[in-house]
């Protein structure tokens, strides 16, 4: 059971992130939810890479190593995630400058108002 704990944590993070992303009206929290969601997936990869008795890569000692490939993949995925967050924040700044609020319902109401 104990060795499965990280997997459960990963799934929990994915669920929490998705719930916040879907449920919260505040756009910043939606972006935060997205980040949590992605972190859950990263954790899944890193957990899958760990092996019984493995040790960190790049250590000069002999012995079993953790598989470094998923870590490299996740480094790439983290960079992708950072870029996504950066774009999202830039969009949030624009939305805030335009409508003065970051609540989705309020922004939608403002857009509807502008249309009429």
């Amino acid at each position: 059971m104990l060795e499965r704990l990280p997997y459960l944590a990963a799934i929990a993070l994915v669920g929490i992130g998705l719930a916040v992303l879907v449920d919260d009206e505040h756009l910043v929290k939606k972006v935060l939810g997205l980040n949590v969601f992605q972190t859950g997936i990263f954790l899944f990869f890193v957990t899958a890479a760990a092996r019984e008795g493995g040790s960190a890569p790049n250590v000069a000692k002999a012995g079993p190593y953790a598989n470094p490939l998923p870590q490299v993949l996740i480094l790439t995925a983290i960079v992708v995630g950072v870029s996504v967050t950066a774009v999202a924040l830039a969009l949030l700044v624009r939305i805030h400058a335009e409508y003065g609020t970051l609540r989705e319902d309020a922004v939608r109401a403002a857009i509807e108002e502008g249309r009429e």
């Binding site: 950066a86 924040l89 830039a90 700044v93 624009r94 400058a97």
Partner: peptide, 12 residues
């Protein structure tokens, strides 16, 4: 660049 971009928008 990103930091400046976001920080500037904050000042405005």
């Amino acid at each position: 660049g990103l930091f400046f971009e976001l920080a500037r928008a904050d000042d405005a």
